[in-house]
């Protein structure tokens, strides 16, 4: 049981507290150093927005894939060699149109389809975005540089369960005939969260 009574000493720095847990894990044979190395590789090399960008580009160029993506996102992304952690059991792909704009958030913590769109940016996990985007979507998006036309319908998606969401942006005009690879280069993490349009 946590003991809140002995707060007589100054709180240790976050680094010292992290070191304490890592050392305790090490002493118990849990091999934290190996896992930290593995995790850094995943965070830096594997869970990157380039994954989602490939999904988006394929959905733009392959109508049959697009349908499969809407029907079962989690299964469809495996066609590109991508995967989601076991507890992300469902991927819902939200289609932007010229009249509809989707934006995702997690008001309770920070949930995202991180293995597809990349780990959430700092501001996504901040108190301001979590508190405000559900209630003041148009205002918040405008403050973040996305000034949507008045007749654009806004759909906010709060990630409160194990379903994960990603936004499928509208394919930019003037990209006819582009390769999937070149198209993927246009797609950003922010566009797949829905705080920007391409």
């Amino acid at each position: 049981m946590p003991d809140q009574t002995h707060q007589h000493q100054a709180t240790a720095s976050v680094e010292a507290r992290t070191d304490a847990i890592e050392a305790a894990f090490h002493e118990r044979g849990m091999e934290p150093a190996n896992f930290i190395r593995e995790f850094k590789h995943l965070a830096e090399e594997e869970w990157v927005p380039e994954n989602g960008a490939r999904v988006v580009a394929k959905a733009w160029t392959d109508p049959a894939f697009r349908e499969r993506l809407f029907a079962n996102g989690r299964e469809a992304v495996t066609e590109l060699g991508l995967s989601m952690p076991p507890h992300h059991r469902h991927l819902v792909v939200l289609e932007n149109t010229p009249n509809v704009h989707n934006v995702i958030c997690c008001t309770l913590c920070s949930c995202t389809a991180f293995s597809i769109i990349g780990l959430p940016p700092d501001w996504y996990k901040d108190l301001e975005y979590r508190a405000r985007v559900v209630r003041q979507s148009r205002t918040v998006l405008k403050e973040m540089g996305l000034d949507l036309p008045a007749d654009m319908e806004i759909r906010v998606w709060d990630t409160t369960a194990d379903t994960r969401y990603m936004v499928l942006p509208v394919r930019p005009e003037g990209t006819e005939g582009w390769s999937e690879e070149k198209l993927a280069g246009l797609v950003t993490k922010d566009a797949m969260i829905g705080v920007s349009r391409l």
Binding site: V14, T18, A43, R132, D158, K189
Partner: peptide
């Protein structure tokens, strides 16, 4: 927090990072 009022602007930046300090990645890993 959803719908709570009084919070200011989102501290947004382009290509924002997930981690800022090395200990943060270690905590996530641990």
């Amino acid at each position: 927090l959803g719908g709570k009022q009084g919070f200011g602007r989102v501290r947004y930046s382009l290509r924002a990072q997930t981690f800022h300090e090395p200990w943060e990645k270690r905590v996530n890993a641990l």
